[in-house]
Computed example of a mutant assay.
Amino acid sequence: MKKKKLGTLILSALLLIGVLAGCGNSADGGNKSAAGSLDAIKKRGKLIVGVFSDKPPFGFTDEKGNYIGFDNDLAKRFAKDLLGDESKVEFVPVEPASRIPYLQSDKVDLILANMTVTDARKEQVDFTNPTMKVATQVLVSDKSGIKTLDDLKGKKIIVTKGTTADIYLTEHRKDVELIKYDKNTESLQALKDGRGDGYAQDNFILISWAKDNPGFHLIDEKLEKEAPIAPAVKKGNTELRDWVNKELQTLGKEHYLIELYNKYVKDALGADTDPYEVITEDGKI
């Protein structure tokens, strides 16, 4: 009887070990059906992408509510090449501060929302190769008298929460008062209403907005040196990251990013801007 019980206990232990081993494979990425994996995306039949809905020319919606713009069109192309149909993409609107949490909680497979690559963000997500490069500047009213970054001392500067401008000014400019909003549109409206002396953001966004809103100009000096912008995946999702990198190489041969630049960005930045000063075709910077 004792031998029978001992055999039963040993068998139960072996079964438990097998179950735990299987769980371990899922946790460390061994499970190909893990959220965000290529297998899971294909079984689901759609690519879920976090994008901006209010940040032209990169991510915004038209009068019918369709998601368009540089990043959003790129997401459609990813869906077409991965799943055979550009409509097999689900757009999830994000704000700058929610981009990383949405990846970490598996609400999205991929972020295509004009995210600048920084060392701090690299610790939380995995970036693919870049699609463009950008600098952070400050937009001010022509009547403000502000001409240099030194002139910002003691001023009220508007930022959108979670942006590189927000992070940089919070850490390095204790001499300015930051006014923070969740949305880019809220920040721009606050600047227009005079609720702040300037708005710090990616220069592409500011240049585009200033063209349609006379009376504002960029301070020539940049807050930080030029940095790459890239799609991002959940930390450890090397499978999707590597697929995007190969896809960017393929699209580079077609000059697809330049096509998107000409469609959405060229008019915003002006015809005299060299697109290769902005775009990183082939994922190379």
Rank of each mutant, 00 (worst) to 15 (best):
A227Q: 09
K183L: 14
G84C: 08
T136I: 13
R44D: 11
L152G: 04
A165W: 02
K222F: 00
K4G: 00
I68Q: 11
L9W: 11
I167R: 10
V108N: 01
E259I: 04
I41S: 08
K235G: 02
A79Q: 07
P96A: 10
A230K: 06
A268R: 07
V134Q: 12
F60S: 06
A190V: 13
P275H: 09
L191E: 07
K55I: 05
A227L: 11
W243F: 12
L74A: 13
T280M: 13
I100N: 04
E90S: 09
K222T: 10
K192F: 07
I167K: 12
K234D: 03
C23K: 05
R44E: 14
V92R: 10
D202L: 06
A27S: 10
E226L: 14
M115S: 13
K211E: 05
K43H: 10
L112K: 02
Q189D: 12
V278M: 08
K234Y: 02
V176M: 07
R241M: 10
L6C: 06
N184F: 13
K107D: 11
T131F: 08
F52H: 11
N245S: 08
P96K: 04
R77E: 13
G84F: 01
G283K: 03
H217L: 05
K211N: 12
V159A: 14
I10F: 14
I229V: 15
L223G: 06
N31H: 09
K88R: 13
V89Q: 05
V134F: 08
H255V: 00
S26L: 06
K284E: 12
K266L: 09
